[in-house]
Amino acid sequence: MSGRARLVVFVLGAAGLAVAFVFALGGMPPFGGSEHPYRDLAVAAALRHVTPNVVSSVNFDQRALDTLGEETILLGSVIGAAALLRLVGHEKERPERAGGRLPDAIGLGCYLLLPVTLLIGLDVVAHGHLTPGGGFQGGVVLATGLHLLYLAGRYRSLERLRPLAWYEFGEGASATAFVGVGLAGLAAGGSFLANVLPLGSFRELLSAGTVPVLNIVVGCAVATGAVVLLAQFLEQAIRITGGAGPGSSG
C-alpha cells in the first residue's frame, strides 16, 4: 500500500476503535468506587493464609498458576533471545578495547551502590509476603544492580561475576523448582500449587506457607533470566562485529 492509503486505513480503524471505546467508557463504574468483589474475596483469603501482603498472596498462592505462566514467558523470552542473538555466519567476537575513561566519581559511586543495591534486592525478595515487593521486583533489582559494574566501566569484571552457563542453569533450575512446589502441592494437598507448608503466624519471616518459597524461586528466575537476557544484548552491542547478523540488513 502507498503511505497515504496506509494512513487512511489506519486513521479510519483507530477512529472507529476510539468511538467504540468512548461508548464503552460510559458504562464504567465511577473512579475510586468501593465495590470490589474480587478484592473482598482475596483479602479474606490472604488473611486466612497468614499473608499480610495481599498482592503476594494473589500472585503466589491464589493465582499461582498465572505466575507460573508468567515465569515461563520470561524463560521462553530469554531462551528465544539467546537463540535469535546467537553467533552465526561471519559474526565474530572482537578483541576488547579499553573503554573511555570515566570520571572517578561515577566509578566510585557505582562501586558503593553495588552492595547496597544487591542487599535491597535480597531484602525485597525475602520479605515479599510481608511488605510490598517480592520475587519479580527483587529479581529485577538484583539483575540491574549487577550491571552497575558495566556503568562503572568494568565490563570485564561484570563478565567475571557472570558465568553465563551457571545463570542459564539457574534459570532452568528455578523454573523446575516452581513446578516442583506445584507438584508437591498436588501430592500433599491434592491440587496443583496448593499451599501445603505450615502457615506460621503474622509478621514472621517464616510464614505464609509456600509464598516466600515461591518468591525466592521467582527471584532467582527473574534475576538469572534478566542477566542472561541483558548479556545477549551486551554481547551484541559491545563484542560482536561483522556478518549478516541480526540488526543488519544483510
Binding site: V124, V140, V141, T144, L230, F233, Q236, A237
Partner: peptide
Amino acid sequence: DVALSQIGVGAALVPLMVVLTVRR
C-alpha cells in the same frame, strides 16, 4: 508492588535494552 516492578523494568531494563540495540 506494581510501582516497584515498573521502576525496575520500565525505567531501567527496557531502556537499557533499547539503547544497546540501537548501538549495535
